[in-house]
């Protein structure tokens, strides 16, 4: 995606988004709610058309060649759009046809998807009877029914409990191991940190930083950070002083976090040192608190 702009009325959801996803990796699109991640996903699937800029997916120009691109993509959306009244097997069977899996391969593709999603035992149950985690697995299995080259996962674990989230992370890692390119949007820092080979941090419809998680942390937070706890007035005073000294800080709940603490040469107050994380980078760059 190059210079992609998309507005909905007065709201500019994407404001010159540049995004290049190398093949064969898991690429994380990390941003706060409303950053434009889902709009970018919808443009990639042809369900939204960019007002400006160019979009190319798997060698196909969008929107003109969207259909050819979609044939090689699998999509798991943020909000479930399952045919919940259908049986699990029928859900997969319908999408095997929609994705044009050849007739001779269709039954095998459905069985593989059931195994992948861990839903073989529930194949005859209606999708509506599945738990939230199972439905999410079914969505991902549905996206993989045709063995796609590119998998788009829009907030794949949003709203799920930690146990189910970890199950899905294993599933996503296995996709990458099988050679698929995965583009995953998320606003969970830990998810991006654990799964993504490269991350683009998106805010207000544009990429504000891009690189491997380690590169981003080194560049924007250093090796170590320092958390200082205190009253609101004390922290405000410390933040003012840090600004005057040219030190980068970020507010993190009841604490003030000094970034690049390892490079501060004794100019820091007393506090708790810890390893810098992607969350430090994210909050510093987007100015938002995250889950």
């Amino acid at each position: 995606m190059r210079g992609v702009v998309k507005a909905f009325g007065a709201v500019r959801a994407l404001d010159g988004l540049d995004l290049v996803v190398p093949s064969g990796i898991c690429y994380g699109l990390l941003g706060p709610n409303g950053a434009g991640k889902s709009t970018a996903m919808r443009i990639l699937t042809g369900q939204a058309v960019a007002d400006a800029g160019s979009v190319e997916v798997l060698g196909h120009q969008l929107p003109a060649e969207s259909k050819l691109a979609r044939a090689r993509m699998g999509v798991s959306p943020q909000d479930s759009n399952l045919d919940v009244d259908l049986r699990v097997r029928d859900v997969l069977s319908v999408f095997a046809r929609l994705y044009r899996v050849p007739a001779g391969d269709r039954a095998g593709a459905v069985e593989r998807a059931l195994v992948l999603a861990g839903l073989s035992a529930r194949a005859q149950d209606r999708a509506v009877t599945l738990s939230g985690g199972m439905q999410r697995r079914l969505l991902i299995a549905r996206a993989l029914i045709h063995d796609p080259d590119l998998v788009l996962l829009d907030e794949p674990t949003v709203g799920l409990d930690p146990q189910v989230r970890h199950e899905l992370w294993s599933l996503i890692l296995s996709l990458r191991e099988h050679g698929a390119t995965v583009l995953m949007s998320t606003h969970y820092i830990e998810e991006a940190e654990r799964l993504a080979d490269r991350v683009a941090i998106v805010a207000s419809g544009r990429v504000v930083a891009e690189g491997t998680p380690d590169e981003l942390i080194r560049a924007h937070a250093g090796r170590e950070v320092l958390d200082v706890h205190g009253s609101v007035a004390e922290l405000r005073s410390l933040a003012d002083r840090a600004r005057a000294d040219g030190l980068a800080t970020r507010q993190s709940g009841p604490a003030l976090t000094y970034l690049h603490a390892d490079e501060a040469d004794g100019r820091l107050p007393a506090g708790r040192r810890r390893r810098a994380t992607l969350e430090d980078v994210f909050v510093n760059l987007t100015g938002d608190y995250v889950e």
């Binding site: 369900q47 979609r70 759009n81 045919d83 999408f95 994705y99």
Partner: peptide
């Protein structure tokens, strides 16, 4: 149900 959204993600 947003089934059309799901279908449009496929080559349809």
């Amino acid at each position: 149900q947003r089934v059309y959204d799901a279908m449009l993600a496929a080559p349809v």
